[in-house]
Each structure stands twice: as structure tokens, then as C-alpha cells.
Design a protein around this nucleic acid. Structure first.
Ligand SMILES: [Mn+2]
Ligand SMILES: [Mn+2]
Ligand SMILES: [Zn+2]
Ligand SMILES: [Zn+2]
Lengths: 140, 140
DNA sequence: AATTACTTTATAATTATTCTAAAGTATGTG
DNA sequence: CACATACTTTAGAATAATTATAAAGTAATT
């Protein structure tokens, strides 16, 4: 049974509105993802490793994937792709930009980049969003 | 043995300068990739399927991967990532932008997008490149 | 308490990719 | 040209990320 301390209400609500019952595993995942002040960028594997590291009874891989997918479908997480092979997820679900520095992802707020010129969408199409990736390297 | 008709010289040269001997399989792949007027965006699986479709003796998967990787390392192909799970390659190796419309990739020339405001790189870093993806949807 | 519904998990399956090792083909040398 | 050496192709095995399956666990409903 779930002790419904109102401290966790916000994390439980995200699960509920994603169509998931707030089980213990899911509440822990939701807290781990959303109980932070800064945007969190992660892969499912990273999430699993960092959460399971400090646990005696591990949460299964399938539960991580299922929970992340449900939260994504409900709009609480955004999936993106930088390097191939792995999906990244972002707790900042607004359309925004990124620095990408050797595997590390940093948010750039939308208002930090503005355009002087943008192409029009091909006929029959319209623009859904415009996202910028700025790749970094060390100077010297 | 390779009949060195000068018609294929340019495709053979790309292989040579990628450190690959111009075998028949490789020359066919090089021609398929570079003997076109428009930019070509592809996954290795797509490349393999479309080339092998019309062949009696199929070129092996490993040869496709090896050849694409060598051409990429030599700078004749650029790898990029849009949706997860698969690497895309681009015969336009300059830094440029893309429309992305439901799996379909279209080049946007660099000069079609200009910036009014761009953030500075974090200290110790400098900007390697800035690439934009414009996601499209149907208007209706 | 019994029934039903949803969850978790271990494990199998799948997909994209890379590795391996054997068989094939080309190149260099005398 | 013979032979040795070097590089290539390929089928199939291995790997990594992800998804599917199905049995056992837990919660909700009656
Ligand atoms: Mn991949
Ligand atoms: Mn993937
Ligand atoms: Zn972000
Ligand atoms: Zn392109």
C-alpha cells in the first residue's frame, strides 16, 4: 500500500496522469526524475544504473523502460537523439536548444537564440518546431 | 582486376583516399552514393536494401558498414542522428541544416538560416558548429 | 475472502551494429 | 608465370539497446 504523504503528491500525479498506478518503484523513478531544480538529461541505462546503485532490491530494466515511455507519452519527458544508438530523455519538455560537448548535454533557453532568417516550410507543410544543437570543443 | 575506365575515376579516388582498394563492391557503393546531383541521406540498412535489390550476388552487410565507415572517416560522408536507433549518413559533409518531416530528411543550405542572437560557449570551450533541425507537420 | 485488474520481473526476442575467422582475390618478387 | 604475402569479402557469432512475453506478485473491487 502506498502511504500518501502529500510530499510525493506531485510525483504521484505525474504517474496517475500518465495512466500509471503509483507503485513504489514508479514513485521512486518519478521522484528521481522530477525532484530537482535543473533540467535532467539521461538515457534509460544511466537512469537505471544510478538508481539501482544505492538499492538492495533492484528495479528491473523493463520497469524503467515502461515508466519512462509512459511519462514521455504523457508529455512529462521529451525524447531526443544526439549521437546514434541511444535515446536521450529530457525533463525539459519545451522546445529548446542544446549545447553538446563530448557526450554532455546542456540546455540553452529558447530566448538565447533568435533567428534573422528562417526558410519557409515546403508547401502543404508547416513548421512544428526549430531546434538548434551547438557542438562544442575545447579551445586552445 | 579492376578495369580502370576513367568514368569511375572520381569514385575510385574517394575509396583510395579513404584507405580502401577499389574493389568491385566498393566501387559500386561509391558510385551509388556519390553519382547523383542531390544530397543523399541514408541509413546503412536502406543503402544495403536498395543496392542489393537489383543484384543477383548480394554485397554483404559487413562490406556496407566497413565502406561507409571508411568514407565517413575520410570525410566523404557525415553521420547524424535524428530519431534514435539508427545512424543516418549524409553525402553533404558541410555543416548545414535540415528539415525533418516524418522520417524524410531535406537539406537546408547554411545561408538560408542566419542568427540574430547566439549564446557564447562556456568558458574553456568554443563552438565547433551550429546545426538546426526544423521539424515539419502537415498543415490542414 | 474471492475475483479481477494491473505490475514487476526474469528471460527471450529483436534490431542495429560490430567482430571474427575462414575462404577469396589481388599484389609483389624472382 | 609460381609462390608468398597482403588485403577483402562474407557468413555467422557477438554485443548493446530496446521491446516482448508470460509467470508470479500486488492492489482494487465486490
Ligand atoms: Mn544504433
Ligand atoms: Mn536505440
Ligand atoms: Zn534539454
Ligand atoms: Zn543533409
Amino acid at each position: 500500500m502506498q502511504k500518501m504523504n502529500s510530499k510525493n503528491k506531485i510525483f504521484i500525479d505525474k504517474l496517475r496522469s500518465s495512466g500509471l498506478r503509483p507503485t513504489n518503484q514508479r514513485v521512486e523513478i518519478s521522484k528521481f526524475l522530477f525532484n530537482r531544480k535543473k533540467t535532467f538529461h539521461f538515457t534509460v541505462e544511466q537512469l537505471k544504473n544510478s538508481m539501482n546503485l544505492k538499492r538492495s532490491k533492484k528495479i528491473s530494466t523493463a520497469t524503467f523502460y515502461n515508466t519512462v515511455h509512459a511519462l514521455k507519452s504523457a508529455g512529462y519527458l521529451k525524447e531526443f537523439s544526439l549521437e546514434n544508438n541511444t535515446s536521450y530523455y529530457d525533463t525539459n519538455v519545451t522546445s529548446h536548444h542544446h549545447f553538446f560537448d563530448n557526450g554532455k548535454v546542456i540546455d540553452i533557453k529558447s530566448d538565447k537564440i533568435t533567428f534573422q532568417k528562417l526558410p519557409e516550410a515546403p508547401k502543404g507543410k508547416k513548421i512544428k518546431n526549430v531546434e538548434v544543437v551547438i557542438r562544442l570543443e575545447n579551445n586552445n
